[in-house]
């Protein structure tokens, strides 16, 4: 493929592609957030944000994703400086915190279901689940990719230091964290607006 091919912009093809994908995902999540903001007050029946959100839990999961984002930055740094053990630990932390975040989300969704907010209860629930669900899906895919990187590094050890691939996964993971930062504010903190 194009490993260290001399490119016009000096940026590796795959990294450029990941940034383009991030631009495209901006539109994906932009539409989802707009759909949520439009539909959050249009429900006829069933619970809405004010009765159901638990801000403390969500702040914890935001911290969790922040930590995993920093761990990812460490992993990219260690990979560039060829430090195997620290890189593997960082990748493991990222995957672990990613799983914690998914755990938080699973708990939150089951709690909401228990409170009576199903996918088809009202339009608020539908747009909320679609937004946070789509983001959760991206986190899950991220955890899968990072765990494959970790497994590859554990098997190959010192021979495998592909800092391009790790950096691109880092870009993806940071973007998923950045989207959560916006979701956290727009969904959970704008509830009384």
């Amino acid at each position: 493929m194009s490993t260290h091919l001399e490119t016009n912009t000096g940026v590796d093809n795959r990294k450029f592609a990941m940034w383009t994908l991030i631009g495209s995902e901006c539109f994906l999540f932009g539409t989802l957030i707009t759909n949520y903001l439009i539909n959050r007050n249009r429900s006829v029946t069933g619970p809405t944000g004010q009765e159901i959100f638990n801000i403390d839990l969500t702040t914890l999961s935001t911290f969790d994703l922040l930590l995993s984002s920093v761990a990812m930055a460490f992993a990219v740094y260690y990979c560039k400086h060829k430090k195997l053990r620290p890189m593997q630990w960082s990748l493991a932390t990222v995957a672990l915190f990613g799983l914690f975040f998914l755990g938080f989300q699973y708990y939150e969704f089951s709690h909401f279901l228990h409170e009576g907010l199903g996918l088809s209860t009202n339009v608020f629930g539908a747009s909320f689940y679609m937004l946070t669900g789509c983001h959760g899906l991206h986190v899950a895919v991220g955890v899968m990719i990072i765990s494959t990187l970790l497994i590859k590094s554990l098997i190959k050890g010192e021979a495998w230091f592909n800092d391009d691939v790790v950096e691109i996964c880092g870009l993806y993971w940071h973007f998923v964290d950045v989207i959560w930062i916006i979701i956290f504010t727009v969904v959970y903190l704008f509830v009384y607006v």
Partner: peptide, 17 residues
Amino acid sequence: LLKINFIFAFLLVMGIA
């Protein structure tokens, strides 16, 4: 070019939103 690419997409989606 990367900055332009990302900032353009971000501002455009904010505008449309």
